[in-house]
Amino acid sequence: MTLLAAALLGGIGLVCALVLGVAAMTFAVEMDPREKLVLDLLPGANCGACGYAGCAAFAHALLENPETEMVCPAIHENDVKKISEILERKLASLGGMIASVCCKGTVKDVADNYIYEGPLECRAAQLIAGGSKACAYGCLGLGTCEQVCPFDAIHIGEDHLPYVDKEKCTGCGKCVIACPRHIIRLAPFDLPKCEVRCISKDSPKEVKKICSTGCIGCMACEQVCPFNAVTVMKNSAARITHTKCTGCGLCVKVCPVDVIESVIELKKASILKDKCNGCSICSQVCPVDAPKGELKNPYTIDEAKCMGCGICIDKCPKKAIEKRL
């Protein structure tokens, strides 16, 4: 009996398989071979979170419409890279980029032109005489970036400024497009070490009048930077060239309006006593006077002063300085 049941089930299965096999050959339809490849790389869960009716539809859209972005939240980063290769175009929401907000002006810092009472939407607020905040480059703080973020990665803090959650941000750029004041920028995930939180193009005089934390173009940062990474141009906030910046934080210290921020914390230097011959080069190159000691005796680093810029590590002839673990 059991055998018969198994045979029947197997038989039906076999018949189905045969029919399907024949059908597959008879009704074979040629499709773009890339579509199959893309489809294989997609998670295949048909969850519909991308807004399309399943992975196949999304794969089709990726091929057909060159504006389709990688909106699949479940896909692995490597697969996105592979799909980019297949499609021969870069997909925007690749990992590795991160949004960064270029304004530090809280309600207390920046003057208001008028009292705004409309919808809590930056883009709508921008329509009324260009936004209530007196600085045309300042964050309106109504949270449009928070609303448009599909990954819940940007939030308006208590000071009414947006903060990016580094863990969650995928660099999709939705907030960058949505921000009516264009103060959100995308930067490579691991590159920025220091950032100028201001993009004002007003004259320094104007900035000083309306904002207590806007870049006033005083050039202090440009002069102090040992790596020529900061440039200040006329009527434009200071800019940091991220490829040159080591994150030493000297500019952060000298900035009179506190508009430059350290994004990462650097490891401090430490001197290996047995290698140091007391040549004093480190104390000569150090911008903050952190190495202490007497000539020809091993030096020590004053941890309170050291910022971890790493200049001494490069200059030490004996390779006696290391980053503290």
Binding site: C16, V19, L20
Partner: peptide, 23 residues
């Protein structure tokens, strides 16, 4: 064995229909 047979048949049927419609 109704349930299991039906599942099998429906699954195969849907696949078949899909192929035919595609063509």
């Amino acid at each position: 064995m109704r349930t299991i047979v039906f599942i099998l048949v429906i699954a195969a049927l849907v696949q078949l229909v899909e192929m035919i419609i595609q063509k």
